[in-house]
Simulated assay, not measured.
Amino acid sequence: MPEHVSILQQIGLAILAVATVAWVVGLVRLVRVVALAPPEAARMPMGVLPKQSQAPAAESAPLTADEQDAFAGLVRQFGRS
């Protein structure tokens, strides 16, 4: 190594090289695991919820007269915009 390169720079370069090699090895292993996975697992990434077997039931709540008036006022206000 040239004389003007400090020992800290040499250590930093060595650490960066080791981290790069470790990242490449991990990436290659991940690609191999995904390539060998069954097709169903490849379509649904981790953390994704499975599809629902049936549609959810509709939810509703009755509104009081005051709430209905307030809602009508909001609809009129948004209609003007």
Rank of each mutant, 00 (worst) to 15 (best):
V28H: 11
Q9W: 02
G73H: 13
F78K: 14
L8R: 11
T64N: 15
P56T: 10
V31H: 12
P50Y: 04
A70R: 12
T64W: 13
V31I: 14
G12F: 01
Q9H: 04
I7P: 00
A19D: 09
L63F: 03
R80W: 00
Q77V: 03
I15S: 08
F71Q: 10
S81H: 09
L63Q: 12
V25K: 09
V75E: 15
A35G: 03
V18P: 01
Q68R: 13
A42H: 07
A72Y: 03
L27V: 00
A17K: 15
Q10H: 10
A57N: 07
L27K: 03
I11Q: 09
L13R: 10
E3D: 10
M44K: 12
L63D: 08
M1W: 07
D66W: 06
R32A: 11
R43M: 03
E67H: 02
W23M: 04
L49Y: 02
P45T: 07
P62F: 02
T20K: 06
V24M: 12
G79L: 04
A72L: 05
P45K: 09
M44L: 05
M46R: 14
V31D: 11
L30V: 06
L30N: 07
P56E: 06
P39M: 07
L36P: 01
I11F: 02
D69Q: 02
A65Y: 07
H4S: 02
